[in-house]
Amino acid sequence: KRYRAVYDYSAADEDEVSFQDGDTIVNVQQIDDGWMYGTVERTGDTGMLPANYVEAI
């Protein structure tokens, strides 16, 4: 699945990823209600991200 960031996010922990509004997130997997795991296409960084900061595309 592919998602697009709708807000900027700065990683708060080493297992999270930072991204900017408009970034595409690929290979996304749902972890639980609030978190997903995926790769930021622009940077190649992979990690956890907050589900409410992205939307499906």
Rank of each mutant, 00 (worst) to 15 (best):
R2L: 12
R2H: 10
R2V: 14
Y3G: 00
R4F: 08
R4A: 07
R4Q: 10
R4I: 11
V6M: 13
V6P: 01
V6K: 14
Y7I: 10
Y7K: 15
Y7L: 13
Y9K: 03
Y9Q: 02
Y9D: 00
S10F: 14
S10H: 13
A11S: 07
A11F: 03
A12S: 11
D13S: 15
E14L: 11
E14T: 11
D15G: 14
D15H: 14
E16T: 07
E16Q: 14
V17G: 00
V17K: 01
S18A: 05
F19M: 06
Q20R: 14
Q20D: 07
D21H: 15
D21F: 15
D21E: 15
D23H: 01
D23G: 00
T24V: 15
T24K: 06
T24H: 10
I25H: 01
I25W: 00
V26I: 14
V26T: 11
N27H: 09
N27Q: 09
N27S: 09
N27F: 10
V28P: 04
Q29P: 01
Q29M: 13
Q29T: 14
Q29W: 13
Q30E: 12
D32R: 15
G34V: 14
G34C: 15
G34K: 15
W35H: 05
W35R: 08
M36I: 11
M36S: 04
M36T: 03
Y37V: 09
Y37P: 01
G38A: 05
G38N: 01
T39I: 05
V40H: 03
E41M: 09
E41Q: 10
E41K: 06
R42S: 06
R42P: 03
T43I: 02
T43Q: 02
T43Y: 03
T43P: 03
G44A: 05
G44P: 00
G44Y: 04
G44F: 04
T46L: 04
G47S: 01
G47T: 01
M48G: 03
M48N: 08
L49S: 00
L49H: 01
L49V: 11
P50Q: 06
P50C: 07
A51Q: 07
A51R: 10
N52D: 11
N52P: 09
Y53S: 12
E55F: 09
E55H: 09
A56E: 15
A56D: 10
A56N: 09
A56Y: 12
A56L: 15
I57F: 10
